[in-house]
Amino acid sequence: MENFTNETIDITQLPKFEEVVFTPLHTKYLTVVIINLMILIAIFILIPTLFSFFKPELFSGKLWLILGAVLPVLFIWIATFSILGFKRKGFAFREHDVLYRSGVIATNTIVIPYNRVQHVALHEGLISRYLGLAKVEIFTAGGSSSDLEIPGIEKEQAENIKQLLMGKIQKQL
């Protein structure tokens, strides 16, 4: 029988993920972000316009004035946070885990040890595929959706990442 030990760990000696050099998302992904933003803005403009065409009594001059003042401010706010968010995102692969950082106001860093990874998927959206980009989705135990999504990676690099992670999964079996 083994002797059970439960020694205290010196937390000052733990590796610090803050010191990791993160790889930024591919610059082409900013195009994806901007196109998605433009689609969102078009929807925000199209819906009131259609409503005003079919139900003109719902839209008075005051409502158009409010929409004309609020929507541009909302669009600028969303665009600013989308672009700043793009610049703050990054990922890193270390010997034992994968890290993903995001966030504008608060920075979120997700760390997933390879021994928790159960499945890896590659996803290409319509715009991303056209630009040669993909998203790596990493699944761990117990969830029906991915635990980590890393968008904006060149497709060839994303396939290499998927193979790396699949190799880590195979070593565990």
Score class of each variant (00 low, 15 high):
F4G: 08
F4H: 12
T5A: 11
T5V: 14
T8I: 15
Q13S: 14
Q13M: 14
P15I: 10
P15M: 13
K16E: 13
F17S: 10
F17V: 14
E18R: 06
L25G: 00
L25S: 05
L30S: 02
V32G: 02
I34R: 04
I34S: 00
I34H: 00
I34A: 01
I35C: 00
I35K: 00
N36S: 07
N36T: 02
N36V: 02
N36I: 01
N36R: 02
L37M: 10
L37T: 07
M38I: 15
M38L: 15
M38R: 01
I39P: 00
I39F: 03
I41Q: 04
I41N: 06
I41G: 03
I45T: 09
I45C: 12
I45D: 08
I45H: 08
L46F: 13
I47N: 09
I47W: 04
I47E: 09
P48Q: 10
T49D: 07
T49E: 11
F51G: 09
F51C: 11
F51K: 09
K55V: 12
K55P: 03
E57I: 07
E57Y: 10
L58T: 12
G61N: 14
G61W: 10
G61D: 15
G61M: 13
K62R: 10
K62W: 11
K62V: 13
L63I: 15
W64A: 08
W64Y: 14
W64Q: 08
I66H: 08
L67I: 14
L67N: 06
G68L: 09
V70T: 11
V70Y: 08
V70N: 06
V70W: 08
L71P: 03
P72Y: 10
F75S: 11
I78C: 06
A79S: 13
A79T: 07
T80W: 12
T80S: 11
F81I: 07
S82C: 09
S82H: 04
I83D: 00
I83E: 02
L84I: 12
L84E: 04
L84S: 07
F86Y: 15
F86C: 02
R88I: 03
R88A: 07
R88E: 03
K89C: 08
K89Q: 13
F91Y: 15
A92D: 04
F93W: 04
F93G: 01
R94C: 06
H96M: 13
D97R: 09
L99G: 03
L99Q: 04
L99M: 07
L99E: 05
Y100S: 00
Y100E: 05
S102I: 01
G103L: 06
I105H: 02
A106P: 03
T107Y: 04
N108Q: 14
N108D: 12
T109R: 01
V111N: 13
P113C: 09
P113A: 11
Y114R: 09
N115E: 12
R116Y: 05
R116G: 03
Q118W: 07
H119G: 05
H119N: 15
H119L: 14
H119E: 11
V120C: 00
A121N: 13
G125M: 03
S128E: 10
S128N: 06
S128Y: 00
R129Y: 02
R129A: 12
Y130K: 14
